[in-house]
Design a protein around this nucleic acid. Sequence first.
DNA 1: TTGTATGCGTTATCAA
DNA 2: TTGATAACGCATACAA
Lengths: 361, 361
Amino acid sequence: MRRPPERRVVLADVARLADTSEATASRALKHDPRIGEATRAAVHAAAAKLGYVPNAAARSLRAQRTHILGILLDDLADPVHAKVAAGFEEAAASQGFAVFIMTGLHDQAREQRALTAFVEHRADGIIVASCVSDPADVLDRVRADRVVFVQPDYPALADGAEPPARGVVRTDDSAGVAATVRHLAERGYRRLTYAGPSGWSSNAWRRAAATATVEELGLGPLRFVDVPVDAWRDPSGLALTLADDPPDAVLCYDDKLALGLLDALRSTSLVVPDDLAVVGFDGIPAARQSWPRLTTVEVPSVEVGRHAVEMLISSVRDGRMPASEVLPVSLVIGDSTPQRAPRTGGPDARATVATLPGAGS
Amino acid sequence: MRRPPERRVVLADVARLADTSEATASRALKHDPRIGEATRAAVHAAAAKLGYVPNAAARSLRAQRTHILGILLDDLADPVHAKVAAGFEEAAASQGFAVFIMTGLHDQAREQRALTAFVEHRADGIIVASCVSDPADVLDRVRADRVVFVQPDYPALADGAEPPARGVVRTDDSAGVAATVRHLAERGYRRLTYAGPSGWSSNAWRRAAATATVEELGLGPLRFVDVPVDAWRDPSGLALTLADDPPDAVLCYDDKLALGLLDALRSTSLVVPDDLAVVGFDGIPAARQSWPRLTTVEVPSVEVGRHAVEMLISSVRDGRMPASEVLPVSLVIGDSTPQRAPRTGGPDARATVATLPGAGS
DNA sequence: TTGTATGCGTTATCAA
DNA sequence: TTGATAACGCATACAA
């Protein structure tokens, strides 16, 4: 069995064995058209025989181009972020880029260290996904035509700041939430509650979209329940709050929270969906396997990662960062939001007026 | 707001501004003790003012050490693999290593390309996780003291080949399966079925452990159902097979399959756990939120990633690869395997003899 | 078609 | 305590 070469084998070794110069060997290996067939074959044979592998550091140093992309994301253990990373890695690899992946774990200092690492390694491009750092801080350290922001979620956005017009990939969360509210209205749900972690801009957007659509449709006022960001691990508090004065349906910030809630509600007297409809957001795999199957908004996370890479590589090639993109999402209707049965006590008019704007007031 | 420097700023620029030589500037920046306080301050000030970031490629070239680790894994979108990656990344970052992550996606050619990328970039160490390539092939290209294999799953292992004695991190799947079977026996389940994708060595091990434990406990013979590797996406075939002649309990290769099965069984007349108990393997988050909650074997995936990094870094430092490790797993008892009620028709002796070896024959 | 020489940015060796 | 210089491995401008 062949072993890896003991001593480092460099281009000079290949050239020597092929009986040419380093320059010729270098050109032959990258199929420069003006190298004779004979020498090219000799060089390739020598390289194969010696197990030569070019040194990327030396090449990068010389070429001022690393063919490295970096992605900074929040947490690989989170299914949504992992999918973005998967799309990113796959797209980057298919274009011949190696990828650095670093996680921020909600920690600004970590995020800064990750950026430092990317810059030290002179990554050709960087993707900043779901990070708490303000893009302005990132742009202090990296050229704007070398960064793409994915699903930015920094605090200023919650206060209404606009994300950059170029180099951002987002999903149309507002449309997803609006579609969800419409779906609920059509199915006869009127008293809605939105549950999510306040302070996150992504949450603020979703909540705002829910509010707007509820008003547009003339549904009962939207109630809010603020939950801790890790409430999905133990949603019993949310379950109790809901059980105390149950709405018709609850919109959860994401699927993790919704699935946790489904579980927690089994310890209460509320039955889903008979007493309470539940919807999630993201479309993680577990949402398809839950009971009842979760109605949710499917976010094309893998696509998000791919698009980000394509924007980035395009910008790296010609220095022009493409305009920001907003990818469409889709409502997936499960069994957690069935057509609502009329309440006991006879037919209930509320269900039928739900889609008539203004009829409720 | 400060912008990133337009022209590349290199050490020479810092030296010039600080009015010293490159050598002194270099030493001052890495806090060489024999540099005067005044010059050190001047150099640091100059570096800060210019926004100097050292070039890792140049440093690596010179130092013959990259501080880069590479991990090759199967699929970032898979929760188990993503967790290994998360542990890997976190541990590596905390030790000051940048990490290349590449995915194989069950494709030998992709795996080989990933290895090539790692070698070109002269990664200080490599982790090969859950890959289809034979370790022997990997060792043709990488020094043995620079690779750690995680959960190796190459075909030869299914035929009884032993994994390497050093540089491997695995989990004690056999013990986990054995504990599961014992648990089922104690709870009164006797007729067991094992469902998994044949051809995978990890499946072969789990299945063999189940067989051995079933025999040891004197339970009825273990039945097997071979399923495609992606059966979890559509487990209706498995559900029908089980419904056709239901065992007391079914052991699934992993949680994804078990959760899919729970879902698919809702379209049959079988009720879990009354008619059929179900157990999974891995302990993914969704298993805690399913209904009924899944009894499963919890695998410390994040720990696996961490241990792999620690082994690797240790070996990189002193050239001695630590001995292989087998991490313990733990049985998590959910609601999918309750104490079994006696069958209709009166008390059933089978439940009580389950734990008595030999009593069943 | 091939060879020579230089420089990419950093660090380590040697000399001052 | 500091400075000049060579070398890491490769690719290219220029010469032949």
